[in-house]
Amino acid sequence: MEGLGIQLAFYSFAAVTIGSALLATMAKKIVNSAFALMATFFGVAGIYGVLGSDFMAVTQIVVYVGGILILLCFGMLLTDRVPDEFRVRSPRRYVGASIAATLTFVGLAWAISGTAWARLPHITDGSAEALPTTALIGNALLTDYLLPFEFASIVLLVVLVGAARVARGGTR
């Protein structure tokens, strides 16, 4: 991870992520929040890209921008009477939320910085830096992770049956 270009890319993506996340929480209109959230998701995807996880970056965009955010927009479109001024602003809540957020941040930062994280060999020696990770992931899914991979199909089946059951019209 040497090189000025990479450093620059990382910090600009980080700035986009944090800036738009702030925007998403501060915006007065929920539509603005949703669009700021889109920038956050792109920023996180960029960080994944910088870290050499091309697949994670693409997944992040497909799942979060393409899926979750669209769902969110549908939710807003289909819900009647979402007030534009939807936030209750009271100083007490700000204080409570700030304390909780600060404590969480300090706790996480303390745990993460004090950790000797296990490093995967291909990251440490940089041998696989430029390779696409999809082949590795595909291999892993069909060897080491075969059981969870196959059993996930049952999760999907259950979800499909369940969605049909819960969403079906009528009283029965």
Binding site: L147, P148, F151, I154, V155, V159, V161, G162, R165
Partner: peptide, 30 residues
């Protein structure tokens, strides 16, 4: 599969099959 799970990924997927089935079964009486 929960009873036989031997890694954290299998554990998670197996547990989710149980939980998701119960989401639907609990709400079954529409």
């Amino acid at each position: 599969f929960c009873a036989s799970a031997n890694d954290f990924m299998s554990l998670f997927v197996a547990l989710e099959v149980v939980t998701v089935s119960f989401f639907v079964l609990v709400a079954f009486k529409r």
